[in-house]
């Protein structure tokens, strides 16, 4: 009974976080800030929904498959985000910034120039 309650709570949290990440992807101003919103959907929304479903399924093969999905997404989602951020910088998208703390900007500008040349 307690496990049932806990799993429903986790599923509700997961559904709510899915909507929040989708709202964030609409509200935030540019690609880089939107990636943070997408990060919510890829980590905790997926994680808590899968955890809730695991608790519903109990010790069966379903739980193992959900755990495998979770494990794979924990490796794949940062890779995708990083590749997208690097491609966006190289493609010449200027991030909206309050502060740019990189005093020596050569490295980033190098990447941008290379993007323009090729």
């Amino acid at each position: 009974m307690a496990i049932d309650m806990l799993s429903w709570i986790l599923i509700v949290i997961g559904g709510g976080l899915s909507i929040i990440s989708a709202v964030g992807i609409l509200r935030l101003p540019d690609v880089f800030t939107r990636m943070h919103a997408a990060g919510i959907g890829d980590t905790l929304a997926l994680g808590s929904l899968c955890a809730g479903m695991m608790l519903q399924a109990g010790w069966t093969i379903v739980t193992i498959k959900l755990a495998l999905i979770l494990l794979f997404m924990f490796f794949a989602s940062p890779t995708t985000t990083h590749a997208l951020a690097k491609a966006a910088i190289a493609g010449g998208v200027k991030p909206i910034l309050d502060e740019d703390r990189i005093a020596n900007k050569n490295a980033l500008e190098d990447t941008e120039n290379k993007g323009k040349n090729s």
Binding site: L17, I20, P29, P95, I102
Partner: peptide, 28 residues
Amino acid sequence: IWEIIKANIDVALIIIKPELKISPVLFR
């Protein structure tokens, strides 16, 4: 995982609040 949960709550609160309190930074 604990760090991810804490960071998720922070970002989710920023998105929900009507005024968007973001200050994007690029740093090394």
